[in-house]
Simulated assay, not measured.
Amino acid sequence: MGHGGNVIAELMADHREVEEYFARLQALPAGDKRRRDVLDDVTIELVRHSVAEEMYLYPAVREHVPGGGPLADKEIQEHAEVEQVLKDLESVDVDDAQFDILVQKLVTDVTEHLREEEQLLFPSLAQACSPERLMELGDQVRRAKKVAPTRPHPSAPDTPPGNKLLAPGTGLVDRARDLITGRGRS
């Protein structure tokens, strides 16, 4: 969850973690009940990561990167689409054919999103921000991930100030539900 370093190092480490979850998920045979546990783990990571980016990374992109507004809007829209797929997956059993279709969509969409961030957004931000600002953003992202929700909430606000106000409370409720159900302990 928290890896250390500037915002780019922090988020790149998250990206590698998500890719590892995807590899584990895809290595399990269709219908295997363990796929739900791995999906829960990747969902927790993706939601926390997305919320933190929406709270701090994308506002910084808007502020510092020339033409950053449309770029941030595009990334937020992609997050919304992924969050809807995660929400749809919550109600599909692992032995339903729809599960595999949705998982493949999730993997494809997220992989493309990560590639775009790493090849376009991160270099642009690194060029536009001082090393001190990048470290500050890394600290903000790490703090945000600690209190962020762990379940998809597609109708929740995805830009400040709404997300900064609501995410910690929603995150508290999600973590309480996870504790009670044992979700995310695989």
Rank of each mutant, 00 (worst) to 15 (best):
R35V: 12
P157I: 08
A23S: 09
R36G: 07
L86Q: 04
N163F: 01
L39N: 04
S91A: 15
L125N: 01
R34E: 14
I101V: 11
A52L: 03
R175V: 02
R16I: 02
G31C: 08
A30G: 12
A52I: 12
G171F: 02
P149V: 10
L89R: 01
K145S: 09
V107D: 02
H113M: 09
P157K: 10
K33T: 15
V141F: 01
I44Y: 05
G31T: 08
V173N: 06
V47S: 05
G68K: 02
T111E: 06
L179H: 05
Q104P: 08
Q127N: 14
M55W: 01
E17W: 09
K145M: 11
G169P: 09
D109Q: 14
T108F: 01
T111Q: 10
A9K: 11
D109S: 06
P123S: 01
D40Q: 07
L125P: 04
V18H: 05
Q84E: 13
E78V: 10
R34C: 14
I180Q: 01
V38R: 07
Y56H: 12
D73I: 12
R133D: 11
L28F: 04
E132W: 06
E116L: 12
V107Q: 00
A13D: 05
H49R: 05
E132I: 00
R36W: 00
E75I: 14
G5D: 03
K145D: 07
V107H: 02
L166F: 02
D174R: 04
G184Q: 03
Q77E: 15
M12V: 15
T159S: 13
G182C: 11
D73G: 12
I44W: 01
L106I: 03
D95Q: 09
T43N: 04
A144G: 01
G138F: 11
L134K: 07
Q104K: 14
Q84L: 15
M135N: 03
E45S: 14
